[in-house]
Write a protein that binds this DNA or RNA. Structure first.
Length: 597
RNA sequence: CAGGGUGUAGCUCAGUUUGGUAGAGCGCCUGGUUUGGGUCCAGGAGGCCGCAGGUUCAAAUCCUGUCACCCUGACCA
């Protein structure tokens, strides 16, 4: 494949648009890959589209090799589809909606569990037709509350989504087998794309389901925090990350008082930092008590007799993890609406663990780091007041030993340096990542809701078990730039570069130079390489700057210098310095080697 | 959704405080010059100052409303 710069559209700019901040947004804009048309909406120009097609092609090859079949579902989906799964409500404002001339409403697909389930429901009659794995590469629409960072979080984006269908979880043809195959396929995809990534255990989120892994491109600018255990290889999203054993010195709740409980007036101080500063107490000596409302037992179903409120207590410098609160309490919880909580006797913003005394409608979950002795400051259970010298045993008393109401549990987000949950003695390290892939074991959430059930070999009607697997294709392109760039521009991994080789013609008006470039490009193309010839009538400096900016892996410069020696100048984008002169005849082999490396 | 900010030429921005003929750099066009890391000189085109009202002899500038976009947080298969 040979293209000429003047015949395509590559509008590079010296300056970035003022609204671009992240490296990928700045560089993809400056290098003429993308252009913003609206908030979270971007044009993909020719260079971007070539890269997106290359990523897509790798995805297709790996999905097909893993036994999946490509199809294409509509982007415009009748809103009725979402009724049975209640996602018209659960997804809420995230759904873009359009209305037709008759007033019927359609959602622009944010993900396609519903239509694919509907399709399979209408076209599969026997367990003998399973398992099945179907995927598509398509534009998705989500009305994000806050689009940001260019292609990293936008409202219209390209995604590969796959869905698998099974009669059982274990064994041949089961969900686990497909899940493992997708795990391997995803690993292959991102490895072939030339990206440095980490696979982490993840929360499954509103899509629902049990097991879930995220594929994270490692980049300091990533939105997600990931934690790794160097000893065991365990890695998880901060939302999910477990923490190893944390013994409480002297035993939980047994510390001796450090002084008399003293009330302090702390008006107009909304945050821990303000209060701590005012009281001259460091956040790690304060107790933070967060009030959750118990919604329903975590297993589902309308149980009764459980707690109405779940309180999580962590150290002031720690963050409560809602997923862990749910797991430790056995109840699905939500942050308590302030009004309801006040009515139930909680001085929101000033709650202390002491509030549990004399009540039986509260489950108190205490993080081990907050259960020890020593000095504590806490809320005073009344507005604008805190207390000093809080002591667990003295203030809360005997109910601490009643496991129906008080539990010691890991309820906070993991941090750098926390003990590893998998390797005793080892400590967690943190990193940042960009989520480019996510795989889920869905179970029967969607098939139950939509009535996708068929007879198994024992003539039992059973809900079909599903998995779903996504890759953010356009986000992968941006993530690659976040991870691979320098002060001069993008550095594409060869596999997803828009072209493999850029032939920089310093004097396109010289016939001999042009002929040399054409011959060279033809030889390169014959070897399967994609070539862009910079045939613009520009000064050398402009061409070199643009070459670095758009980041083609190999640059071959044709000018008087090298041509006089019967050669061209070879320079890999990754390398610094001036490059080296190679003979024209040797250039194709050298380029091929560089691209394969 | 809360808080903060910005809308002036294709792009990046001055000008708004104190109302009085709409500016610069980059890019673009013409001529010359230069030719291995964003040449230099001269000339030129290009703007409903986001939009709608209002105040005023006079509004980019003051007032009201509205729309769009960005940032921080909340949120986020």
């Amino acid at each position: 494949m040979i293209h000429r710069w003047r015949s395509t559209l590559i509008p590079t700019t010296r300056e970035a648009p003022s609204d671009a901040e992240s490296p990928s947004h700045v560089l993809l804009s400056r290098a003429g890959f993308i252009r913003k048309l609206g908030s979270g909406i971007y044009d993909y120009l020719p260079l971007a589209w070539r890269t997106l097609r290359k990523v897509s092609q790798i995805v297709r090859e790996e999905m097909d090799a893993a036994g999946a079949s490509e199809l294409l579902l509509p982007a415009m989906l009748p809103i009725e589809l979402y009724r049975d799964t209640k996602r018209d409500v659960d997804y809420g404002d995230l759904l873009f909606k359009v209305t037709d001339r008759k007033g019927a409403v359609a959602a622009l697909g944010p993900t396609h569990e519903e239509p694919i389930t509907e399709l399979v429901k209408g076209s599969i009659q026997s367990y003998k037709q399973l398992p099945l794995n179907l995927y598509q590469i398509q534009t998705k629409f989500r009305d994000e509350a806050r689009p940001r960072s260019g292609l990293l979080r936008c409202r219209e984006f390209i995604m590969k989504d796959a869905y698998s269908f099974h009669m059982h979880v274990e064994g041949a043809g089961g969900l686990n087998e497909a899940y493992d195959a997708m795990y391997r396929a995803y690993t292959n995809v991102f490895r072939r794309c030339g990206l440095d990534f980490t696979v982490v255990e993840a929360e499954s989120g509103p899509i629902g389901g049990s097991a879930s892994h995220e594929f994270m491109v490692n980049a300091p600018s990533g939105e997600d925090t990931i934690l790794k255990c160097p000893a065991s290889g365990y890695a998880a999203n901060v939302e999910k990350c477990e923490i190893g054993e944390r013994p409480v010195e002297g035993g939980a709740f047994n510390g001796a008082p450090t002084g008399d409980l003293t009330e302090v007036h702390t008006p107009n101080m909304p945050g821990i930092d303000e209060v701590g500063g005012f009281m001259k107490v460091k956040p790690d000596r304060m107790l933070k008590t967060i009030v959750f409302r118990a919604v329903e037992p975590a297993g589902g179903g309308g149980g009764s007799g459980g707690p109405r409120w779940v309180l999580a207590v962590v150290r002031g410098d720690h963050d409560v993890n809602e997923g862990k609160v749910k797991a430790a309490s056995g109840w699905k919880v939500e942050l308590a609406p302030e009004k309801d909580a006040r009515a139930a006797g909680f001085a929101i913003g000033y709650v202390s663990p002491k509030v549990i005394v004399g009540r039986t409608d509260i489950l108190l979950l205490v993080d081990p780091d907050a259960a020890g002795g020593g000095f504590w400051a806490s809320g005073a259970d009344k507005a604008d007041h805190h207390v000093k010298h809080f002591n667990w045993r003295r203030e809360v008393g005997a109910i601490l030993d009643d496991s129906r109401y008080v539990k010691l549990a890991d309820v906070r987000n993991a941090l750098e340096g926390d003990p590893s949950p998998r390797a005793p003695g080892s400590r967690l390290v943190t990193g940042r990542g960009i989520e480019v892939g996510h795989i889920f074991k869905l179970g029967t959430k969607y098939s139950d809701a939509m009535g996708l059930a068929i007879l198994d070999d024992k003539q039992q009607k059973r809900s079909v078990i599903m998995g779903c697997y996504g890759i953010g294709v356009s986000r992968t392109m941006a993530a690659s730039v976040e991870q691979n760039h320098d002060e001069n521009g993008i550095i594409w991994p060869a596999a997803i570069a828009p072209y493999h080789v850029l032939v920089t013609l310093l004097k396109p008006e010289e016939t001999a130079h042009m002929q040399a470039a054409e011959k060279l490009a033809a030889d390169l193309a014959a070897g399967g390489l994609d070539v862009l010839i910079d045939d613009r009538d520009e000064r050398p400096g402009v061409k070199f700057k643009d070459a670095d900016l758009i980041g083609i892996p190999v640059r071959l410069t044709i000018g008087d210098k090298a041509l006089a020696e019967g050669g061209v100048e070879f320079k890999a984008r990754r390398d610094t310095g001036k490059g080296e002169v190679v003979k024209l005849a040797d250039a194709p082999a050298k380029c091929a080697a560089a691209v394969a490396a």
